[in-house]
Design a protein around this nucleic acid. Structure first.
Length: 489
RNA sequence: AGCGAGGUGGGGAAGCUAGGUUAUCCCGGCGGGCUCAUAACCCGCAGACCGGUGGUUCAAAUCCACCCCUCGCUACCA
């Protein structure tokens, strides 16, 4: 089985914020899980550098050489992702030759297919903003920012015959309930399509930055057209099993991109998953409010895994959610530390102290077999939740498993038993360690950094095979490690 | 305005498609147990007339009607 997941490619007019980190982390979780299962996995992320915004940001910061600016920003983005230990397989920049080649190739296909024509774009232009305004944003034809009369400008654009594909797109979405998730986004797209579709322009004249249109040197590709094509990069993995999107860009992906692919004759992605947005401590995140969160400094304080855990645990994937530092800290202390890390330590340190770090022999009874059955059904549930991209549910299933393990240890009181019967206590610890191994693996995609340490200490590999079974053998060596520290401040 | 999603104990959610014993889970609060463990772990308790009104039914959080409230989408904004 192969698994190909994409994130949107991000604008480089600023550094990564918590929102872009969120999307990329979701992709990372999925990629890690599929790798554990042995799937041929490919995780693509990258940067959208051909936007007019790039030029504006570069100039605002005093750069004359735009390419230099993009190179520097790209380094910063890569560094940020490395600090967060994200495991992407390739990082695409739309200023790269390999991308430009793909754009041209793609364009030629739809051009030869007769889906490109020259038309006129009419719009209200503001000299101050240097951009077109929509009528709804500019009541009375006046720019809301500059209070100036907008000019009616006509310019020639090349258009893509998107409207031609409207029926096919609609049909595809209606016939494939899993194509757009969650359902609420699917409904939105369907109702949008039912209103009808107009063609979309794909080029702009007179730009100095961007990719040249092969049929007309005076035009550059409009940034959206060029950006979407990045996903085609890993040819042998096409089509993606899932493309992750923010809700603001759902329509471009679920409609325009799909129409483009139909025209060029590519198979379609299996699922477009639209996630929600964060507010920060109840407020909308924005630069002007100055409440944008830097994921790097946050991770230094709370650990990468702590943040990953919180994001998926507290915020239902697909819904909007509030990012609160208070809640973050509570989740880490009350769940990651108290439930998981504590479980890990109480079992491993007990074995280390009393059994020289070697797994004692086991003699399971009806009670243990009952629990194994329960675990096995929870693991099945986890797998189907992961498969359906219900990551929040899958994580809470993982929590259930480690709770069962804590309960088992608690009820069987090996610290008492060991005083009279070391062998019997050993059997309890043996079973506890088996449950611990399952917990570690279920948590692994969500918290891979501590997961690595946990696997090493347990002497296991992060593999999904027999995840629900008690496969650790008598005499297996393991070490006591504290995976997380309590956040005190 | 149209279309869509939702309103469930202090907070966050599940249940509702196939109506039926004490409405479930997590956090928080309170009490107890345990002491292997990072005051962690385990057990118990309090707290919800399931947005409102009316209807269908032996029986509704679950079905129907109307109403109120919140949020999202309604084209070039990653």
């Amino acid at each position: 089985m192969k698994f190909y997941v994409t994130t949107p490619i991000y604008y480089i007019n600023d550094l990564p914020h918590i929102g872009s980190a969120y999307t990329t982390i979701i992709a990372d979780i999925l990629a890690i899980w599929h790798r554990m299962k042995g799937d041929d996995t490919f995780f693509l992320t990258g940067l959208d550098e051909n936007s007019v915004k790039t030029v504006q940001a570069a100039e605002a910061k005093g750069y004359k050489d735009i390419q230099k600016y993009t190179d520097e920003m790209a380094e910063k983005w890569k560094n940020a992702w490395q600090k967060l230990n994200l495991t992407y397989d390739d990082f695409i920049r739309t200023t790269e030759e390999r991308h430009k080649k793909n754009v041209i190739k793609f364009f030629n296909k739809i051009y030869e297919n007769g889906d490109i024509y020259k038309g006129v774009y009419e719009g209200l232009y503001c000299d101050g903003c240097e951009e077109f305004k929509l009528e709804k944003d500019a009541p009375d034809g006046v720019c809301p920012i500059h209070k100036k009369q907008l000019k009616k400008i006509k310019e020639e654009n090349y258009y893509f015959k998107l409207s031609k594909y409207r029926d096919r797109i609609l049909e595809h979405i209606e016939k494939n309930p899993d194509f757009i998730k969650p359902e609420k986004r699917r409904n939105e797209i369907i109702s949008f399509l039912k209103q009808g579709l107009i063609d979309t322009s794909i080029s702009r004249p007179g730009l100095k930055w961007g990719i040249d249109l092969p049929i007309d040197k005076d035009h550059k590709f409009w940034v959206w057209f060029d950006a979407l094509i990045n996903y085609l990069l890993p040819e042998k993995y096409w089509p993606p099993e899932v493309q992750l999107l923010g809700k603001d860009i759902a329509r471009f992906h679920c409609i325009t991109w799909i129409g483009m692919l139909m025209s060029a004759g590519y198979p379609l992605p299996k699922t477009m998953y639209v996630h929600g947005f964060f507010t920060v401590n109840g407020q909308k995140m924005s630069k002007s409010l100055g409440n944008a969160i830097d994921p790097i400094s946050l991770s230094e304080k709370y650990t990468i895994d702590g943040i990953r855990y919180y994001m998926l645990r507290d915020i239902s994937l697909g819904e909007d959610g509030d990012f609160s530092e208070v809640a973050l800290k509570e989740r880490i202390n009350n769940e990651v530390v108290a439930n998981y890390s504590n479980l890990f330590y109480r079992i491993t340190s007990f074995i280390q102290k009393n059994y020289n770090g070697k797994l004692p022999s086991a003699n399971y009874s009806e009670k243990e077999n009952e629990i194994l059955k329960q675990i096995s059904s929870l693991v099945k549930r986890y797998e189907s939740e992961m498969q359906e991209y219900e990551l929040t549910k899958a994580l809470s299933t993982a929590v259930e498993v480690s709770t069962i393990a804590n309960k088992y240890i608690q009820e069987n009181e090996p610290w008492k038993i060991i005083k009279e019967n070391k062998e019997k206590a050993g059997s309890i610890l043996n079973f506890g360690a088996q449950l611990l191994r399952t917990s570690v693996l279920l948590y692994y995609p969500f918290m891979p950094n501590s997961g690595k340490i946990a696997c090493e200490a347990l002497g296991i590999k992060p593999e999904w095979k027999d995840v629900e079974k008690p496969v650790l053998k008598e005499g297996h060596e393991l070490k006591a490690v504290m995976l997380f520290k309590k956040i005190e401040t």
